[in-house]
Write a protein that binds this DNA or RNA. Structure first.
Lengths: 243, 243
DNA sequence: CGAATGTTTGATCCTTGTCAACTGCTGTGG
DNA sequence: CCACAGCAGTTGACAAGGATCAAACATTCG
């Protein structure tokens, strides 16, 4: 029995939600099945032309690009509900790689059905465009962070952003959320060196503002963290599609 | 007589290209008209909920976000063919501002028709999603630049990227393209200080690699520039939609 | 001519990167 | 069972790239 997907941007894609007859038919054609992968598994590769699109159901991952000189930029973190592979679906090929950090469960779609899906189900097409626009928004936020914030501001911003995101997904317990990444991953996401990132994290910990340890992030002094990172609450994420 | 739009992501949106009868009808409803603005005019404002979407036909602009502390991050430069306002069209409101740098001519669409347009014209919906995915790609590139490249690499990368883009638009003449921005704009785009940006530009000029002066950019030694910026030719821009 | 705006240059400071070493943990093989 | 390698995290010393400050220069505009 498939896992029910609360967070999928394609709102009704699993079959336990009421759908019209032809929606069910199209969906079953479009959704190929589910896929479970181990930590470290590459899901999509830069330059590849994957026949599949995914929605993350469980687990976490990383989206990144690598440069000729070997340096790596983490584009963002992949959480449950994220849609993966739209670039490959719409453009010729992927422009970045996606890899599982924890073990993950993914909902798999068939790329070749994307076009007919667009045609026959404009609501879902709209949802997909919406998801892409939201993505744009977050990338813009990240750009501001890398371009304008100091190291401490960056780390604080990342902590808040991640905490809020996972909290919205219902993964928060007693002020703590799972954050199963390495410090190197965060450093690569924020454009900082590993060493400096480590020192900033340590400072936040000693000052009892936020504590990220053993894959668990807890925010103890949210107010100070917001000040420090020059970030308000994220009122920018629209809860759901407009239509 | 409306200007013919070669570069609009909505491929056939002006009425001089063969369209079916109902496409013409929907288009005329969707396309409201054209708009000419002077340099410095704000087109879309952060937090606003504009009733209009635009396609840039002529002229150039800037997309940017401002932080609470006043610092500004330029998200990207707006060139002819760019689609503006999709965020506001799909999400609740704009998350960044857009402003004209030169005088511009814009093709204006009615936001309220977007949904019915999506429904009745899946090909155009697909185009729009495609445009959004391309945008994503470029933002990812920028993220890599801000996160991983040094100052010289950043400026070199920006020069190449802009030169290629404008060249593809047919705006190149004798190795030179128009680039009517201030050094401050480039600095804000690359996350560098004005002073340092200026020094790097000067260095490229003295080394006869690239020359940006009086709103005109010319690339004299492309090879060195590619080396320096760790950037190959941009083979990543798919020329046109897949369908 | 003076004001405003953008560009250029030099001097100095400091945030962050780099290098190096050490800790603690986990898994593996002798 | 211990030795050892491998990996992530931690810390200190030092160097450097870029920010900041300050001032001059060029151009345009009223």
């Amino acid at each position: 029995m498939p896992v029910k997907c609360q967070n999928c941007p394609l709102r009704k894609h699993d079959l336990f939600v009421p759908m019209t007859a032809d929606e069910i038919q199209a969906m079953t054609r479009f959704k190929v099945g589910e896929l479970a992968v181990d930590p470290g598994t590459p899901l999509l590769m830069e330059g590849s032309n994957s026949p599949q699109l995914y929605t993350a159901l469980h687990g976490m991952g990383l989206r990144y690009k690598t440069m000729e000189n070997g340096r790596r930029q983490v584009i963002n973190f992949v959480f449950p509900g994220d849609f993966l592979g739209l670039q490959a679906g719409v453009m010729a090929e992927m422009q970045h790689s996606v890899e599982a950090t924890t073990s993950m469960l993914l909902c798999v779609f068939d790329r070749s059905e994307l076009w007919s899906f667009f045609r026959s189900h404009p609501e879902r097409a709209y949802d997909m465009t919406w998801a892409c626009a939201v993505e744009d928004h977050f990338l813009g936020e990240s750009l501001v962070t890398l371009g304008q914030r100091t190291a401490a501001e960056r780390v604080g911003w990342a902590f808040l952003r991640i905490w809020d995101r996972l909290n919205a997904l219902g993964l928060q317990q007693q002020g703590a959320v799972p954050m199963p990444y390495r410090q190197q991953d965060l450093a690569d996401a924020l454009g900082l060196s590993l060493v400096h990132t480590n020192k900033v994290i340590g400072s936040l910990r000693r000052r009892q503002i936020a504590n990220w340890r053993d894959g668990v992030l807890s925010v103890t002094d949210r107010e100070t963290l917001e000040d420090l990172s020059l970030t308000g609450s994220d009122n920018t994420t629209p809860p759901r599609p407009l239509f």
